[in-house]
Write a protein that binds this DNA or RNA. Structure first.
Lengths: 338, 338
DNA sequence: TGCGGACATGCATACGAATGCAATTAAACG
DNA sequence: CGTTTAATTGCATTCGTATGCATGTCCGCA
């Protein structure tokens, strides 16, 4: 277990001072001759700067904290993968925390993140108390919320155009001739869930309709299944269901097709939200609103970087439009063009 | 952006030396009186030790590197979640890297992990060159492979009992009266894929059978689908297919049921491996060999910790048995008891 | 009362790289 | 060719915590 090569070692071998080595590797100015000597010595010794030591001085660790909650919803593993790769490409590394969705848990997590002097925090579908928000601001740690907004928090966020998406689903279902349209909503404690619902209700209202029923599915498969059973076994079952995300929508489809023997889309149309890879599988073939993960990730990374580099840049709320993806789980209005 | 509270600040306020504060927080001995004073001052100031500074001295960062490849296979997000929580509970944090499965990429990743002086590395379904293995050994960084072994690497690994699992699937299918049994195998570049196949072929051999066909599915849905089509459209289609993991098995089911219109399990039985949550969904209802994630994670964490604490402990290869989970995708032999 | 030992504490230094400052050198200009 | 200015470079210090060493304290036991 040999001790690692330090900048001292490189300095000695290159015949320069430790500061020279440091300057070469931190991009400060140095004469071409020195750079060459240092680089050569460094390669020969296999020197790599110690990011921890560097972090002590500069206060920048090169680490970004990522807080995630629902890893069983396929949307998040996918997003995690993209985020991770994008940030790696920018030279950052990702410290991942799984959040219990209690505010208590989040509190501890943010503590530990700040302990490690992370350069920024990305939260995926996780809420932060205003107290935490302030603490991060005080420590100068930028925060970007992914796939969730928070009113009045003054935090940057990147979401899809949820209100608009909900509205488009309503228009689509109405155009398809559906009249008894129910909504198994995303968790109402999340902006995402609320916004989709709001847009959806607005959209129906424009057509002079009201939702047949609205049930909070809490982003949970079991709750969504139960809601489906309740809806279908009521006196006036729906002829269409808009589900707050694909994760629940798959459960809804399962329940309709395999448990209740309902024909989709002839008896009931189902529309989801996210367009996770699963949705395209033949077993589900789910009509859904796509959240453009790639562009959302790009926007998140870009926002993060600009907040890191220009600390007094005001936070921004970015919304990205996504198309409605037509598949087999919902009747398609004749002549419908996206 | 106030500067963080340091052990100096606490020392001043408590009327003791900085060393005293350090000793209180690093668990070294101190008189009850000092401990009390320090704790009090620390709480009042909101002091938290800086893990980076600590890491500089001790060489222990409290970070464990996790290298993951296939996040679209539901098995891994689930494992990641459990691993993360288990390690968090032990006071460790997780630096996540997404690996392209090129050896080149892995090389760079391990470099960066060692740069951060991680206390250990866990790889999930990722291979390491012997050169890397040596480097880690030289740096004194323990490595544990999750869900993959590597012969002769001298690395610790935690897998399920893959050979045995494959064999049991063979016995099960034979007992079910199947005679033309095909195998869409896990990637033959992975020990996991090879072992399952080996056990399976052995199991058939014991019954005097040979596999109808063996196709490497490379853990890829598209390849598995194509393999399914090829098999079914051949002159002698199989009456059972053993698929190397659930991720591919779902694609196989999709292809059989929705594309080829084959009845499962009447025309063809399908058995998978992993028992990911998806497998239990009504849409798939997949008979499969369970990999006991919880116990695998426990074993992984335990192995990791013991290697960290006792550096000269020999690496161990742990195998964990998992049951065959009977569901609807495969004919159940009459009188079959698990 | 006196002495040895166990324990507590402070001082000083180390970890590895970044950086302000001063000294040195090279370049540029008249 | 002298002088001003800019560019390099080294020295010393810093970040925040851990730890070896020396000193100091208190207790027990004879």
């Amino acid at each position: 277990m040999m001790p690692r090569v330090t900048s001292q070692d490189v300095a000695r071998r290159a015949g320069v001072s430790q500061s020279a080595v440091s300057r070469v590797f931190s991009g400060a100015s140095a004469s071409p001759a020195t750079v060459a000597k240092v680089r050569k010595a460094a390669t020969e010794l296999g020197y790599r700067p110690n990011p921890l030591a560097r972090a002590m001085i500069t206060g920048k660790s090169g680490i970004i904290g990522l807080v995630v909650a629902y890893l069983d919803n396929q949307f998040y593993p996918v997003a995690l993968e993209r985020l991770s790769k994008a940030l790696q490409a920018e030279g950052y590394h990702i410290l991942v925390f799984m959040a219990e969705n209690s505010s208590d848990g989040i509190d501890r997590i943010v503590q530990e993140l700040t302990d490690y002097r992370v350069d920024g925090i990305i939260t995926a579908s996780v809420a932060m108390s205003s107290e935490l928000t302030e603490r991060c601001a005080a420590e100068g740690i930028p925060v970007v919320m992914f796939n969730r907004g928070q009113d009045g928090s003054g935090l940057s966020s990147v979401t899809s155009a949820n209100v608009d998406g909900g509205r488009r689903v309503a228009e689509f279902l109405v155009a398809g001739g559906h009249t008894r349209i129910a909504h198994i909503a995303g968790w109402q404690g999340s902006s995402t869930g609320r916004d989709r619902q709001r847009g959806f209700v607005e959209g129906l209202a424009r057509a002079g309709l009201e939702p047949l029923a609205i049930i909070d599915g809490h982003y949970d498969r079991d709750i969504a299944s139960k809601a489906t059973r309740d809806l279908m076994q009521s006196a006036t079952p729906p002829d269409a269901i808009f589900v707050g995300n694909d994760h629940m929508a798959c459960a809804v489809l399962d329940t309709l097709k395999h448990e209740l023997g309902v024909n989709v889309p002839n008896d009931v149309s189902v529309v989801g939200y996210d367009d996770v890879p699963l949705a395209a599988w033949p077993a589900f073939d789910l009509t859904t609103v796509r959240q453009p993960v790639n562009r959302m990730v790009e926007a998140t990374v870009e926002t993060m970087l600009s907040q890191i580099n220009q600390p007094d840049r005001p936070p921004q709320q970015i919304q990205i439009e996504g198309p409605l993806i037509l598949r087999g789980s919902a009747r398609i209005p004749t002549g419908w063009t996206n």
